[in-house]
Design a binder for these strands. Structure first.
Lengths: 219, 219
DNA sequence: ATACTTAATGATCGACCGATAAATTTACGC
DNA sequence: GCGTAAATTTATCGGTCGATCATTAAGTAT
């Protein structure tokens, strides 16, 4: 038995099932997301193929290189999982900002608090990927600054553009919530398995102090 | 030129400097910390040796295996950089808790907000290292719970043991501050380069809401 | 200077990596 | 059923990895 490549899938006989190009490609990409999320991007294409039950060269029929596959993994996580309706949730002025904040962070963490998303975010951040920095700018422009603008509007301000201090404070709240996800999903070290409590408390704590930060910075 | 191993250090001639066992070992370990912090633990011992200006097999005279070297890297970061006096800072009842909190987080972040520390913490967390989980328990037992106990004492409580809700809220504050470090050091995406503002605002925001969390949980 | 100790290098092994090309098998149109 | 295009595997290449071992050279004691 010359064993250069791995035995495809199950026990004795490999049924060698055949899929259409698009289906196979989607299957590979989906599995690649969870594989690289779990094992890191340094893990081998051979191991990925083994878990897919196919041989390693087959991957190269669907993706020109490992780097291209990883780029599509980034895209599947960072871009495709972003929900445009999040912006609408935050700017619906028929409701109190506090309610909007709660609903937004529940919706947002429903997407972001998953092993795949979290781990790929951290891995790509450590690799210094540009897509990571662009994502941080997106969070600031589409989440934090709108939140602060809505709070200014509700407080009767004419100028709705937040100061750097306000943005930084919004990052603190956002980070507090985000770090809860890291603790539960990555470090498996959350004391209270209650996402809603965390979101609500973080928001209350933020709202209780944001006026003071705004006034001191605007002064 | 048979080029299996790398040319040691500078241009033409390698002076092949000789160090005592202890000095060499310390030099290797120090460089290994910043090397693995920057490049990740999957990076090669050959590249590490190249940056040290020595040959790769020499590393194996000082560390039995790559894994042993990495274990010492963890120890140098997680264990050796922990300051026992942090506990004293938090429990000095001659000063208001707010002042103690400020001073503690300035001191704590002076150690933790460094590229080496941050990156090794994140890398080891993603690898699921046990030392990482133990560190989280240490933070809870030696930082968060003492903080909450001091706050209960100052508020006149007899029972100084915090509820899970209080601990979770303390984690939110801690995470907000920690994530500022991640943003500045890893993602290079902080809007305001002012650590003291972040610490002070996070603490104010925490202190403004902690009584409510405590009362609602104790009720 | 000579002998001895040991830091440090040179060479190399087996395993694994990303990637390519040729051979093989499956599915589908006719 | 049959031919053909495409999906999949087999085989393999050059490079890199962690680790081992024999050799070389630098420091030290005599």
């Amino acid at each position: 038995m010359t064993e250069e490549t791995e035995a495809p899938s199950t026990k004795a006989e490999a049924p060698r099932r055949r899929l259409s190009f698009d289906d196979r490609r989607e299957e590979f990409l989906t599995k690649a997301v969870e594989f690289f999320a779990q094992e890191g991007f340094e893990s081998s294409t051979r191991e990925l193929a083994r878990r897919l039950g196919v041989t390693q060269p087959l991957l190269y029929r669907y993706f020109p290189s490992k780097g291209d596959l990883i780029a599509e993994v980034y895209d599947a996580v960072y871009v495709k999982r972003w929900r445009e309706e999040w912006g609408l949730l935050l700017t619906d002025r028929s409701r109190p900002v506090r309610d909007r904040l709660l609903d937004f962070y529940v919706a947002y963490t429903n997407v972001v608090f998953h092993n795949d998303w979290m781990r790929i975010f951290l891995f790509s951040g450590l690799k210094g990927m540009d897509i990571n920095r662009r994502y941080m700018k997106l969070v600031r422009a589409r989440i934090l600054e709108p939140i602060l603008a809505e709070l200014r509007f509700e407080a009767g301000y004419d100028d709705l553009v937040a100061t750097d201090e306000e943005v930084e404070f919004a990052w603190i709240m956002h980070g507090g919530i985000f770090y809860y996800g890291v603790r539960t999903l990555i470090y498996e070290a959350s004391v209270l398995n209650n996402k809603h409590f965390v979101i609500e408390t973080a928001i209350n704590s933020f709202l209780g102090e944001v006026a003071k930060v705004r006034e001191e910075a605007t002064r």
